[in-house]
């Protein structure tokens, strides 16, 4: 199987138990496949194991059992060094809290992931500016991240997630800190990126956000209970 036909995410009987006492089974026997170019949302109430699921998907945490293949690569078999490399090169993270360096400019924030990929310094800036252009933030490239609005910050954060050319855009409550109007424009941006062929997985508790995905997965008590094929977003919610 080549990389193009390999599913981006392939979870096989993945479980994650936090050793006690008392032992907590945060994930139990989860199976999920996300194909390349797919847009999947994961919903669930707080305490459902959503965060654990996100950490496992983001290679930030190791499953206690089962197999997790990212781009066909088994993260469990990798050394910590290679897991870090896989995470850095194949996953683009978008956080609820943006996690921008507020004292640095937008373009410097977008250049940050390239620090660890060994890309020549000259190329970094050009690529970062291209990526800011792509998310519609080229005009604020030299603005201090701390002085941007919430929506602008999340756009810069998305540009940062994309700059290494990841296989997967992993979004954790991407609109959690935004008002509904700004949220809509950010979600619109994610829709556009998906339509350009990017694989997207959004973890949220907001059903309005979840509905924009092609498919929604419900997680409850550490189990993937229902796999909903969501209807496209309601027309009146669109931008």
């Amino acid at each position: 199987m080549t990389l193009a036909t390999e599913p981006v995410i392939n979870l096989q009987q993945v479980a994650r138990t936090y050793t006690g006492p008392p032992a907590v089974k945060a994930l139990a026997n989860v199976n999920l496949t996300v194909s390349r170019g797919e847009y999947v949302s994961v919903v669930g109430p707080s305490g459902s194991g959503k965060s654990t699921f996100l950490n496992v998907l983001g290679l930030l945490d190791r499953p206690t059992s089962g197999r997790y293949l990212l781009d066909g690569i088994d993260g469990a078999e990798l050394s910590e060094r290679d897991r870090t490399a896989l995470r850095g090169r194949r996953i683009g993270f978008v956080f609820q809290a943006f996690h921008l360096l507020s004292h640095r400019t937008a373009v410097e924030n977008v250049m940050l992931p390239q620090l660890y990929t060994g890309m020549p310094r000259k190329k970094r800036r050009r690529q970062a500016l291209d990526m800011l252009e792509r998310v519609g933030m080229a005009h604020r490239a030299e603005g201090q991240a701390g002085q941007l609005s919430g929506g602008e910050r999340q756009r810069v954060a998305i540009a940062r997630a994309l700059v290494n050319g990841p296989s997967l855009l992993l979004c954790d409550e991407p609109t959690g800190n935004l008002d509904s109007e700004t949220a809509a424009t950010v979600l619109q941006l994610i829709d556009e990126l998906h339509s350009q062929g990017l694989s997207v997985l959004v973890v949220t508790h907001d059903s309005g956000v979840a509905r924009r995905a092609q498919r929604t997965v419900m997680i409850k008590d550490g189990k993937l209970e229902v796999q909903l094929h969501a209807v496209p977003a309601f027309p009146e919610e669109g931008p």
């Binding site: 930030l60 910590e80 870090t84 850095g88 809290a97 996690h99 992931p113 620090l115 660890y116």
Partner: peptide
């Protein structure tokens, strides 16, 4: 701490 976590998620190893 947030920045450290971010850098780790971007591919920084503990030694970095």
């Amino acid at each position: 701490v947030g920045e450290i976590g971010l850098r780790r998620s971007l591919g920084a190893r503990p030694r970095h």
